[in-house]
Write a protein that binds this DNA or RNA. Structure first.
Length: 426
RNA sequence: GGAGGGAUGCGAGAGCGGCCGAAUCGGACGGUCUCGAAAACCGUUGUGGGUCCUGCCCACCGUGGGUUCAAAUCCCACUCCCUCCGCCA
């Protein structure tokens, strides 16, 4: 959510920046609603002030045994007037709020203007591995090595689900363990949140209303409130401090969570998104930071560096892209994607999206902090990054680390957990 | 699932329907004192909104409704927390 004052004071400037990410921007309606809301607020304040005065007089007159009928009548009239004005004010405020929710964040000046084609590769690590004449794709590898059971996964959950089995489950867990240890070492707090979240969490994080239909909804007979399965732990983490005021001393606040992510992913996928590239449930460790505005930009760099180090330590060829204004998530000021090379499709696929939201999410979620030696409160900045999602990392490992004899070279950081440096077909 | 109790400012905790945005204690901050510190004493200290903005006004005592000229205070519903009983993969 954007700062209404900024929209009011620099309507054209805000509109121009928003147009770098969406086509129709109508701020005039918002400005008009805002003016109407303030007019009503003022009116309601005046009426309440008058009624407060009358009530005091009423008390005094009643005690003195005077006539209070006139006061009673006028006061009731004002009460009716206030009720009517409040009803209109509520409607106007709701309309205004809905429209504000739909506005995307203002992109940072460093974000390239344009769509996907404007994304800029800012770093590359390693080179395309030489895999010999007949490299296998990750589905073949996973099946041949007995790591993932796609057919029985579909039997259990339907299309888009799989089962990690045996060494596959251990490999998956080894990755998660590797991430968890790294984040703990860097001073992040480990969080295991509920996977079921109330709807208000979705709105606060900015995923609703846009992605309302893309999550699994949970609602049982008789439930007053509806919930959903979280599509990313980010949704849970930002809500940890929803409606709270933090002290400046405890910022930056660094957290990470491990959860599966549940996504409906309705519609058919492209042919190159087979295997675990796009499923309904995948494992992810998510990094999150709450910072002061000053700390925000550096925190983004820190998180990108962290994620890159993880992929690097796994020895995977990857690149880092700075996302364009239209390709980045609408809630974010600036986003870097870490993309790993997938030989079978000849593309770099996102394994982590690291973003700086500025105060956009904090405004929605009402997360503030008390600046030291300053009166009042200010909104925190929020940042998040996958650290990491395994569903694309594992395919990259299976494909990049395959050996001509069909075996898999286990990346060094995972060897201790697996008790082996190579996995062979049964 | 059943029966009770509770929710007030940064924390604890008072609050007869008008004198309550709220006692008191503690914390934090500033000051006096001190070579310095402690102690003591004095002062300041919620959030949001509006505005004709060195000020003034309004709203907020878990949330939403109701009664009333007037609600932190009375009534109803809901949410959450605590205690006891029951059930339990």
């Amino acid at each position: 959510m954007l700062d209404l004052r900024l929209i009011r004071d620099d309507t054209e400037g805000v509109a121009a920046r928003l147009r770098t990410r969406v086509d129709d921007v109508d701020l005039d309606r918002i400005v008009a609603l805002d003016a109407e809301r303030r007019r009503l607020e003022t009116r309601i304040s005046e009426l309440n002030a008058e009624r407060n005065t009358l009530s005091k007089q009423f008390g005094a007159a009643a005690r003195a045994g005077g006539d209070v009928e006139g006061l009673r009548r006028r006061s009731t009239e004002i009460g009716d007037e206030v009720a009517a004005a409040e009803e209109r004010a509520r409607a106007v405020a709701a309309d205004l709020h809905d429209r504000l929710l739909e506005l995307p964040n203002l992109p940072d000046d460093r974000a390239p203007v344009g769509g996907k084609e404007a994304n800029r590769v800012v770093a590359t690590w390693g080179g395309v591995p030489d895999l010999g004449p007949a490299p296998r794709d990750h589905v073949e590898m996973a099946t041949a090595l007995g790591l993932i059971d796609f057919e029985r996964g579909a039997k259990l959950g339907g299309s888009g689900y799989w089962i990690y089995r045996g060494a596959g489950a251990v490999l998956e867990w080894a990755l998660l363990d590797f991430f968890v240890r790294s984040h703990l070492a860097d001073g992040y707090e480990f969080v295991l949140p509920p996977h079921v979240l109330l709807d208000e969490c979705g709105y606060a994080s900015g995923q609703f209303p846009k992605f309302y239909d893309d999550v699994y909804r949970l609602r049982s007979e008789g439930d007053e409130r509806s919930s959903f399965l979280l599509p990313t732990a980010e949704t849970a983490l930002i809500n940890v401090f929803r409606d709270e005021v933090l002290s400046e001393g405890e910022l930056p606040r660094k957290m990470f969570a491990y959860t599966p992510c549940y996504r409906r992913e309705a519609g058919s996928h492209r042919a190159n998104e087979r295997g675990t590239i796009r499923g309904h449930q995948f494992n992810k460790v998510e990094l999150f930071q709450f910072t002061t505005p000053d700390q925000g930009p550096a925190a983004l760099d820190e998180m990108v560096a962290k994620v890159r180090r993880l992929v690097e330590e796994l020895g995977l060829h990857h690149q880092v892209s700075l996302l364009s204004t239209r390709d980045a998530s609408a809630s974010m000021r600036l986003t870097y994607d870490v993309e790993v090379w997938l030989p079978s499709i000849g593309e770099y696929k996102e394994v982590s999206s690291a973003s700086w939201a500025g105060d956009y999410q904090a405004r929605r979620a009402a997360i503030r902090y008390r600046p030291e030696r300053q009166k009042g409160t200010a909104f925190v900045h929020t940042l998040n990054a996958s650290g990491l999602a395994t569903s694309r990392l594992l395919p990259a490992i299976l494909e990049q680390c395959q050996q001509p004899d069909g075996s898999l070279r286990v990346p060094e950081p995972l060897q201790a957990f697996l008790h082996t440096d190579v996995l062979r077909p049964a």
